[in-house]
Structures are given as C-alpha cells and as structure tokens.
C-alpha cells in the first residue's frame, strides 16, 4: 500500500511540475492583434520568419475580427494592432489608444456567389449595382455580422447602394456572427452570396459551388493599417519591440516581402506604405 501511495503522490507531483513549467522560454516577443484575413491567408506565416530572423523578436499573433482586435488593443492586451477598418482605426488613434496609424498594404474584397447566380450579376464590375440586384432578387446573402473590418465594409457598401438593411432584411439576409472562414463555410452550404477578402478566399478550400462573381471595383480596395498601442495608456506595452515591427513592415524590405506572398501565382496583398 505504501509503495502504491508513493507512486500516486509522485504522479501528482509530476503533474504539478508540468503545470508550473514556465511558458516556452522566449524573452523577446510581442503580441500583435490582427485579423483572420492576414493570419488565415498565410501572410503572417510568410512574413514573420524573416522579421524574427532579422531581429530575434518573436511575434505572437492573435487573429480576431478587426473590432475585437482593436478592443484587445484598448484593453492593453496587445502591443501592436494590425487591422483593416480605416474609420475605426482613426477613432482608435484619436481616442488615444493608438500612437500613430501607418498604412501598410491593401488587398481587395471580392463578391463570392454560387455558380448558378440567381441574382444574375456574375462578371459585373460594380459592387453597388450587384448588391441592389441581390436585394431585389432576395437571393441568399451571408453576412459576417461580427463587427470585423469585412463586416464594416459590407455595411458601408449596402448604405452606398442606397439600401436600408434594417428595412430590407429578410430571410434572404443571413447574419452568421462568425469569422471569415466559418461564414464562407456557411455560404458554401447555403449557396449564398458573401463578401470576402481575396486572401482568405484564395486559401479557402471548402468552396463547393462558390465562385468569384464581382471583382475589380476600385471601391473594393481594402486598406490595412498598423498601430502601436499607446504606452501612455498601458505602461507595459513593449514600445521598442513593437515599433521595430512597425518600422520593418513599412520598410522596403517588409513591403517587398508582402509583395512576394502569392497563392497559386496570385498576389494577395499590395504594399502601399507611404515613406
């Protein structure tokens, strides 16, 4: 009985030791809150190794919707915010949560829809016209509905198209409250239209009957910005390391690396930092 008890206690002790092991030893790291579009498209997987190799700074990316990512910055849980909703970002800086917004790159939104194309909009260039036709045909449309950058953009397009969603909403407009990937999964299973960023779309595998129906409209461009969380608000923010990351992303080296990232020969993000 005693040897058994000893084994038992040793087991517990061992498990406790596991519990108290320090988090993987990395002294130099920053937390970047960003969007699912940058993480899931694989851009960060391509970009970060070069930065880490050059500076020895590990970048821990937490991928959320733009709204949540900005909130993380507001709470001081990130050092750097890297998102795509210009209006929200400028508000973030004006409120004093971010130091300075720098533009990094853009990609574009694409309107995805079923090959059957019940609204008859395939091949068009005008996103506003396409949305009006979807509304008129009451064709199924999936919305992110999660306060992400893509969701904010979608709402702007509806407004610009002169459609008051509060009145026009019906069973055809399906608010899923989910990230880009889950929303695409939903659209694929419902044969619905959906607004997506090109990066996530290109790396998305469960396409079923979905295809790109509208692209190339100038207004579909989607600008990304990067900001250091204000150390004056949150003293623990890793100011120097975070700034190094921002400086590198907008440097010619970082910008080139962004331009180099391709899926199936297609460039996903177009660097446009002002230097």
């Amino acid at each position: 009985m005693n040897s058994l008890r000893r084994n038992f206690l040793a087991g517990i002790a061992g498990a406790l030791w596991l519990a108290t092991l320090p988090a993987l030893a990395e002294d130099k790291f920053i937390v970047v809150s960003s969007t699912t579009s940058t993480e899931q498209s694989g851009l960060f997987g391509h970009l970060l190794p070069s930065f880490e190799k050059k500076t020895g700074i590990k970048v821990r990316v937490v991928a959320l919707g733009t709204g949540q990512a900005l909130d993380m910055g507001r709470r001081g849980d990130a050092d750097v915010v890297f998102v795509h909703d210009k209006a929200a970002e400028e508000k973030f800086v004006t409120e004093g949560f971010g130091v300075e917004r720098k533009e990094v790159m853009y990609n574009d939104f694409v309107l995805i829809g079923p090959k059957a194309d019940p609204a008859g909009i395939a091949g068009g260039k005008d996103i506003l016209d396409a949305l009006r036709k979807i509304e008129a045909a009451k064709a199924p449309f999936v919305s992110r509905g999660d306060k992400s950058g893509t969701h904010a953009a979608e709402l702007r397009y509806w407004k610009a198209a002169g459609i008051d969603l509060d009145k026009a909403k019906g069973p055809w407009y399906r608010d899923t409250g989910s990230g880009m990937g889950p929303a695409l999964n939903a659209a694929a299973s419902m044969d619905a239209y959906i607004l997506a960023d090109r990066g996530t779309w290109l790396s998305f595998k469960n396409r079923a009957e979905l295809t790109v129906v509208v692209e190339g409209d100038k207004s579909l461009f989607n600008q990304y910005g990067v900001m250091l969380v204000n150390p004056a608000k949150h003293a623990h923010v890793k100011k120097e390391l975070g700034q190094q990351f921002i400086d590198w992303v907008v440097s010619s080296e970082g910008q080139q690396s962004i331009a180099d990232y391709k899926i199936g020969g297609q460039q996903l993000f177009f660097p446009n930092a002002k230097r």
Binding site: L24, G179, G181, A188
Partner: peptide
C-alpha cells in the same frame, strides 16, 4: 505558443480545410 488540438481544429475548419 498557445495552439492546441482543439483550436487547431477550429482554425482548419474556418480555413475550409474540413
């Protein structure tokens, strides 16, 4: 750093790699 089995599964699901 903090990616475990279940969060990986959730991630691959959202990438559509069912």
């Amino acid at each position: 750093v903090t990616r475990v089995m279940t969060t990986t599964i959730a991630l691959e699901t959202s990438k559509g790699d069912l």
